[in-house]
Simulated scan of single mutants.
Amino acid sequence: MATAPNPLSELLAQKGVLLADGATGTNLFAMGLEAGEAPELWNETQPEKITKLHQDFVDAGADIILTNSFGGTRHRLKLHHAQDRVHALNKKAAEIARAVADKAPRKVIVAGSVGPTGELLQPLGAMTYDEAVASFAEQMEGLKAGGVDVAWIETMSSADEIRAAAEAAVKTGLPYTYTGSFDTAGKTMMGLDPKDIHGVAKDIGSGPLAVGANCGVGASDILASLLDMTAADPAATVIVKGNCGIPEFRGTEIHYSGTPPLMAEYARLARDAGAKIIGGCCGTSCGHLAAMRAAIDGYMPGPRPTIETIVEKIGPLRNKTATESGAQEGGRRTRRRG
């Protein structure tokens, strides 16, 4: 167990359920970020826009804001010739969010967003486990220097990469959370099943403060993953940060089908399914988040939803669930053996 209390656990104990923020990328594109441009560079070139995004999320009711540092490892920044500015860009990301949180009228948690490196770990790729730990630690040192409350490891598909990031957090002296993106037949691209998320890094440091899912394909699918996660460990603190409905191409632009009422329904279902930290990912605007805040406040949880209830209220699943895809794989294996 952690020896000292941390702000995230304290706020959870106080409020029971927390609202995390919405999309970073989608909202920055709406502010003028170009495709292929690194959002992290805006921490230095357009800090007022990053401040505005955090402020808008706080005004919409967010209890947790994520720093603009998702691609803040040297491997991601290298694509923009900024690999030598890892510490500075992450520190700046944290400082911008910290300043907004500190002047909020209530307690707001600053979570240091840490996304995947984009590299494959050995034996599938060239990156060693130790190199991954070092890369994440370099990023987290910057985030810590800028004042984050927690390392928020997100959108992961590899259990080894989650472990490397968790190890980096412990090394840096930060409490941590982690989420997977269950976007491939109900599992992550690297085959991690939602029900197995709890055990990935529980032996690292004091273990995670919370685990869960973010991004993926749509609100219905992530709720199906949530049911698997909360069934596997009903006592765990589970995060769900789903996309705003389903992404659809209209010409060259991506639009998300989720309306504020749909995201409010998603928030209520997430609460009923046992999530303790609920937010939005791609496509989630401040308007959606405000509707989610209203849906969570004063809500008396109902019965645990079934997949059928979710589909009826939110819309059809885009993918098979992990259970279905697992059963199908099992069937195929049987046929091959026969």
Rank of each mutant, 00 (worst) to 15 (best):
H54Q: 14
T184M: 08
E10S: 12
G245S: 10
M127K: 11
M190T: 11
E167M: 12
Q14E: 10
L227P: 09
R271L: 14
C281S: 06
A201V: 10
T45M: 09
A166P: 11
P47G: 12
K92M: 14
A232I: 10
P5C: 13
A60P: 11
L227A: 09
K78G: 14
E312M: 13
A267S: 10
D203Y: 11
N6L: 08
D183I: 13
R337V: 13
S206M: 03
A267V: 02
M292K: 01
G326Y: 02
G125F: 06
Y176D: 05
L8M: 07
L124G: 03
S9D: 06
I162L: 07
A20G: 06
E308N: 15
M263Y: 06
Y299C: 11
K92E: 13
I64S: 04
A164M: 09
I278K: 10
T117I: 02
K202F: 06
P305Y: 00
A327E: 10
C286Y: 00
S181K: 12
R268H: 09
S225H: 12
I50R: 00
N243P: 14
G283S: 07
V133Q: 05
L66M: 10
K15L: 06
M263R: 04
S181W: 01
A164K: 11
D63W: 00
I64P: 09
D272T: 10
D59H: 12
E167W: 02
T177H: 06
T323N: 12
L8A: 07
A30M: 08
A145Y: 03
A88M: 06
A290T: 07
G186F: 01
G199R: 14
I254T: 14
D160W: 10
E138S: 13
G298R: 07
A97H: 01
G72Q: 08
T128M: 07
A104N: 05
V108Y: 00
T67M: 04
G191P: 10
W42D: 04
R304T: 12
K144A: 09
A166N: 08
S257V: 02
F182S: 05
L77M: 13
T67Q: 06
E161G: 09
T24E: 05
Q328I: 15
A23Y: 01
D160M: 13
Y256P: 13
G180A: 13
G326Q: 11
C286I: 00
E95M: 09
A322Y: 12
I96F: 01
T179H: 05
A111M: 04
K78V: 02
G330M: 06
A168G: 11
V238Q: 06
Y129H: 15
E44V: 15
A20M: 07
M31P: 06
D193L: 09
D160N: 13
T184F: 11
L18M: 08
T259C: 13
E48H: 14
L89G: 11
D183C: 15
A273G: 13
H255C: 15
L89C: 10
I65R: 00
M263T: 03
I153G: 08
E138T: 10
A99Q: 10
A201C: 12
K144M: 09
D221R: 14
R76C: 14
L226T: 03
K320Q: 08
F136G: 14
V86F: 02
T309W: 01
R74K: 15
A2S: 07
P116E: 01
V108K: 00
